[in-house]
Amino acid sequence: MKRIHNLFAAGAATAALAGANPAQAAGTLAGTLIQNTANATFSSGTSTSTIQSNTVTVKVDQLIGVAVTTLTSTPVTIGTAPAVLIYQVTNTGNGPDTFDLTGAPNVSGNQFNATLQTVAIDTNGNGVYDAGVDTVITNGAASQTLAPDASIKVFLLASSPTTATDTQTSQVRLTAVSVIGSGTPGALFAGKGTAGVDAVVGTSGGTANALANLIASLANVTLTKSAVVADPYGGTNPVPGALVTYSIVAHVAGSGTAGSLTVTDAFPTGTTYQANSMTLGGTALTDTADADAGTASATGITVTLGSVAGGTADKTIAFKVKIN
């Protein structure tokens, strides 16, 4: 038997006949009745007759379908702050369905595995994670009910493990599974569809997933300390009365930013700090806690460098003590 099966043509036809039946990418809605009644006219002798057949009714069952796509196409940088990965979950079935949403940061091939912090549904539909606005769900919990063709955006918030190093990459998977049922395409879930119709697993198997990419953007901070001694006799011997100038060079490398970078150093025992001798990049800092970055206490100095992007010029801190 020769048949032409062209599902694409059927889909296009749906759009073409939008007036006759609402256009649904997901197809005819579950529960729709397909009815067949034939009419006939004929003549017999001089009389003309009109007859009608019985009406056969077939109810359209629910086809379970789901699609997941990643809306963050380029790798999302992950540093000290959590990365927000955005996915879209679409009900490609022809009836309302809910989907269990599971984020999984452990994906084969990852250079590091992020830590999943939050799974949230984009409640206000703006495509941006709004803490306190978007609905946070337990990982693996179900979405709200999605109408056929309807989609939601899902956020996975992932944080970087301490073991990650700059420019390492990782993937995080979001999986959506139909609550009605999943499994081999064609599997039947009797009576589980909308309004009690049967539900049939579609080609998706009732589950779908997508991967979003992360790239670590971290900063490495290196502190290098050195000392220059000037004794009272014009030499460089560490004798009582000698002045020691300590220099601490803060070097920030990597593509990320070191946030709230603070350098502290304690005065060595047996020395006396020389008041207001702190400098940052050659500029003097006062000892008091004020507008400048430096503070000196009885025991040591603290210099607040704040956010320092990797690759910026080294920050050199210096201060003087006198050997007792």
Partner: peptide, 25 residues
């Protein structure tokens, strides 16, 4: 698949019967 009621009483003399079948491929 058909409803129990078959063709309506025909004023003429032809019986008409509808059905729907699924093409199981």
């Amino acid at each position: 698949v058909a409803s129990p009621v078959l063709a309506l009483a025909a004023p003429g003399a032809v019986a008409l019967d509808s059905s729907i079948k699924l093409d199981k491929i």
